[in-house]
């Protein structure tokens, strides 16, 4: 990465807003509770951030391509439920089953969007409901134990310095996603597809194929997140992922993605996930009800969007 690219991303308004928010929140919570600014708590923050980041990376790519998938929470639950219900069984088979089920939902979403041209919001609204129903039936309306010792080790085991492996999974996903986005042809095609689909198609970019792949990828990432969550809880149950719905869509948007496509950043999405997780963590430590966390998130999201709106209007008026 050359100096100019680094400068551009550092001076990016969303990077500034997110960094200010992160530092401000850390200072705020450190003053409010002595339990916040300690090593163990930051380990907890990164561990809880993992599931959110993995989900948000998938959503970020879809937003960049000008699409959205709101079914990811049900897909996460599906992956966890399928693996738990099929256990005890061979570990690789269970992992494959969970991620494959999630991948299939992504494929279904992608099929209806790219082949039939139905808006992705509506398609995933439908599949969200359908998959929720399937999860209920698969789990028989209750929590199911994950009867496998190896899966929790793989996705939530504590090996290096007592940090759960979910953090490493998160780092792997973020690094691969960021490199793919900026360094590979496919990554550039995602930005072109969302930025100007007609232009991209005219220049020979297979935009529909790009979108289909992203829906499948998003499904698979939700599947991975589901396995991590099941490994943490050692079980699966309907509605176990509900808390991730709002932050996983908010994070890419805080990171610079527009609903109209063409922009977005993996690194800034990860930074936004950190900010949102710090809020949850701080609210918990203060002993406040989760309802305050939701209000906090609302304020953060609206403030960030306002800064961006005012900034872009400023640019617009100069022209």
């Amino acid at each position: 990465m050359d100096i100019r690219t680094v400068k551009q991303s550092v001076y990016h308004i969303d990077t500034i807003v997110l960094s200010v928010a992160a530092i401000g929140l850390i200072i705020l919570f450190s003053n409010l509770t002595p339990h916040f600014l300690v090593m163990t708590n930051f380990r907890v923050i990164f561990e809880t951030m993992a599931v959110l980041s993995i989900l948000a990376v998938g959503i970020n790519f879809l937003l960049v391509a000008g699409e959205i998938d709101i079914s990811f929470v049900s897909v996460l639950e599906l992956s966890a439920a399928v693996a738990a219900v099929a256990s005890p069984s061979n570990t690789i088979y269970l992992i494959f089953l969970g991620i494959f089920a999630a991948f299939l939902v992504g494929l279904v979403n992608g099929f209806f969007v790219t082949k039939l041209g139905i808006p992705s919001f509506l398609v995933s609204l439908a599949t969200m409901s359908g998959v929720q129903g399937i999860v209920m039936i698969v789990c028989n309306y209750r929590a199911v134990l994950l009867q496998n010792n190896l899966i929790p080790q793989i996705f939530y085991g504590r090996y290096f310095g007592g940090i759960a492996t979910s953090v490493y999974w998160m780092i792997i996903v973020i690094v691969i996603a960021a490199i793919s986005a900026s360094k590979t042809k496919f990554g550039r095609w995602i930005y072109a597809t969302g930025g100007n689909e007609r232009a991209a198609r005219l220049m020979g970019i297979p935009t529909l194929k790009v979108k289909l792949i992203l829906f499948c990828l998003n499904g698979a990432l939700a599947g991975l997140a589901g396995l991590i969550l099941a490994s943490r809880a050692l079980s699966a149950r309907p509605a176990m992922g509900q808390g991730y719905f709002m932050p996983a869509i908010a994070a890419p948007i805080l990171g610079g993605a527009l609903l109209t496509g063409g922009t977005g950043s993996v690194y800034r999405t990860a930074l936004a996930c950190f900010v949102l997780t710090v809020i949850t963590n701080g609210v918990n430590l203060l002993g406040l009800e989760p309802a305050y966390r939701d209000i906090f998130m609302c304020i953060i999201l609206l403030s960030a969007l306002s800064v961006r709106a005012i900034q872009s209007r400023g640019i617009g008026s100069k022209v």
């Binding site: 550039r188 095609w189 930005y191 930025g195 020979g204 063409g262």
Partner: peptide
């Protein structure tokens, strides 16, 4: 409309689809 993508650089647009 030149078939260009606003959010990309001139060089990226130049090689759009043929990077």
């Amino acid at each position: 409309e030149s078939a260009l993508v606003e959010h990309l650089t001139m060089a990226e647009n130049f090689f759009l689809g043929q990077e």
